[in-house]
Amino acid sequence: METKSEQIKTLIGLNDELENYFRNTIIPQLFVDAHLILRKFTPPAMKQFSLKMEDVGRPMADIKDNFRFPSIIENVKYVIESGELLEKEIQTTDMRWYQMNILPYLVAKEKKTDGVIITFVEITMRIRDLREQEKLIAEHEILLDTISHDIKTPLTSLGLTIEMLRKIPEKGMGKFPMLLEKVESSLIKMKDIIYDLTESRQSEHRYNAIEELLNFEHIMEDVRLTLAPQIMETGAIIECEVCHSEIVFVRRKLRSVIFNLVSNAIKYALPGRTPKVVLSTSNENGFTTISVSDNGRGIAEDDLSKIFAKYERIAKDVEGTGIGLYLVKEIVNLAGGHITVESKINEGTTFKVYLKNQV
């Protein structure tokens, strides 16, 4: 058995190791005990949250404003009482975003939580990048769709006109056939350009369409980060019931599908009701299904057939472009799947995406 002096020496050594860790880590971290007293913090926390050495030993209630996050004490209490890890995205007054992880500090012998360790990881750039990526994806799809649909129609009409001109007898117009041939040649070149931009290079231009084995939870995490401002502003509750986690699909396409459905669920919330979105996955008859349900304002039965049309906007009081659901349907249909919708006014809406399983 160790003598008392040996035990003290061991404790001093462990404390030195802990102090060394806290001094050298580059991530803002805090240790708060079970009585909600700040016991330690890393140097980066001193800079980010204006902490001073004199704050060590003070109650969190006295310095909570330093963190610019009103419910931090309630979150700490929850982790101490439940012993569960808590993760949240928080935004500071200087508009920076952080992933806040509150981990229970467990005392193994006594089997109780003796405090928490709070870690802050800045995710501002990740959120900005994800939001910009979603914007670019939408703009890219609109451009390709405009080329392949809107421009093809007048080109087809021009081709028919040329055919009609061929059948008109023209006397005394020796150059007419030559001019007609030039017009037709230009038409063919234009069609070739359109084809090159759409069908023949579709796999290159549409999202860099490379299928891979994806983890649905990871896709959902990206979407949740992208929508962090909306989630925080509305207090939206996002729940996942994942029965089938692995999905073979194009990462950016799947993220865009989930992003648009979850974004709409939050956007079209019923006034006075906290938005709640429940996502679930399963396998059904050779399809991976993704269900997105909300408790929002719902969609009238007469409007259900319109919501997937390009630029169609049912609710004029909510900001939008009318392309989100159109893009979702295009992505799903092009992959050999389909999407369904069920809705009740003032109760909510459920979209169900069917993605064909890879053999």
Rank of each mutant, 00 (worst) to 15 (best):
F22N: 07
M95G: 01
I193L: 10
T289S: 04
V257R: 03
G286Q: 04
R23K: 13
F308Y: 07
V107C: 10
V76Y: 10
M60L: 14
K109A: 07
L106E: 06
E2Q: 12
R128F: 13
T10I: 10
V359T: 14
I37C: 10
V328N: 06
N15Y: 15
K171F: 09
D196N: 05
H244G: 07
T288W: 09
L355F: 06
K356N: 05
I247T: 02
W97H: 12
I193Q: 14
L327C: 04
E184D: 12
I193V: 11
V32L: 00
S200L: 13
R23E: 12
T321C: 10
D129G: 02
H205W: 02
C240K: 15
L270A: 00
D196E: 15
E163N: 14
Y354C: 00
E19A: 07
T42D: 02
M1W: 14
Y21S: 09
I247N: 01
T349Y: 12
L18W: 15
D65L: 08
L14I: 01
A335I: 06
Q7S: 13
E81H: 08
V332K: 09
I63K: 00
G235N: 14
E54G: 04
I123M: 01
I238C: 14
L261F: 07
S203M: 11
I238N: 08
I102D: 04
N20M: 14
D114A: 03
I219V: 12
N264H: 05
I238L: 14
E139G: 09
P271Y: 09
S200D: 07
I231K: 02
E330Q: 04
Y21R: 09
K171V: 11
K112V: 05
L103I: 03
E54H: 08
S148M: 10
Q230L: 05
V116F: 03
L130F: 11
Y21K: 14
R131M: 10
I188W: 12
L106D: 08
L18T: 06
G115D: 00
T124I: 03
E2L: 15
E17I: 02
D65V: 04
I8P: 11
F41Y: 13
K191G: 05
R39K: 15
V278L: 06
I266A: 00
E122N: 09
A108I: 11
F351K: 08
K356V: 07
R166G: 06
K344W: 06
E17P: 08
N295W: 12
K344E: 00
L36F: 07
M220N: 02
I339K: 00
H205G: 04
K109V: 04
L136W: 14
T349L: 15
T350L: 12
E233I: 00
E54C: 05
E132Q: 12
V223A: 05
I290S: 06
F69T: 00
I258A: 05
T234G: 06
N20Y: 15
I331K: 01
M173T: 03
L213G: 00
L355A: 04
